[in-house]
């Protein structure tokens, strides 16, 4: 059982969290100007990094989304940070 640190609540068991996708996957807009390929990339093409990865997670019990940097191989957590409006 991994332990993640919610930027608002502190360390909690991983079962309280839900994965929200890779960070930095900006939503391409406006729809009228977006090619099907670009849209498909946004929807489906995950980088799936081996090693250090930057991800969006949500702490289900407090409802806050945040950014977590962790190692997908060793499961080491480097940092977690709140995001405030900026699209990470």
């Amino acid at each position: 059982m991994q332990r993640f640190s919610c930027p608002f609540c502190g360390p909690r068991d991983e079962t309280e969290f839900f994965y929200g996708g890779e960070a930095g996957n900006e939503r391409p807009e406006p729809a009228e100007n977006i090619s099907p390929v670009r849209w498909a990339q946004y929807l489906h093409m995950e980088k799936n990094e081996k090693g250090r990865a930057r991800e969006i997670w949500v702490h289900l019990t407090c409802g806050e989304f945040f950014v977590m940097e962790r190692d997908t191989v060793t499961h080491e957590i480097f940092k977690t940070e709140a995001f405030h409006g900026e699209r990470t």
Partner: peptide, 10 residues
């Protein structure tokens, strides 16, 4: 959850 996600991210 989806309302929260867009609220916080957009």
């Amino acid at each position: 959850m989806r309302l929260e996600e867009w609220r916080q991210d957009r």
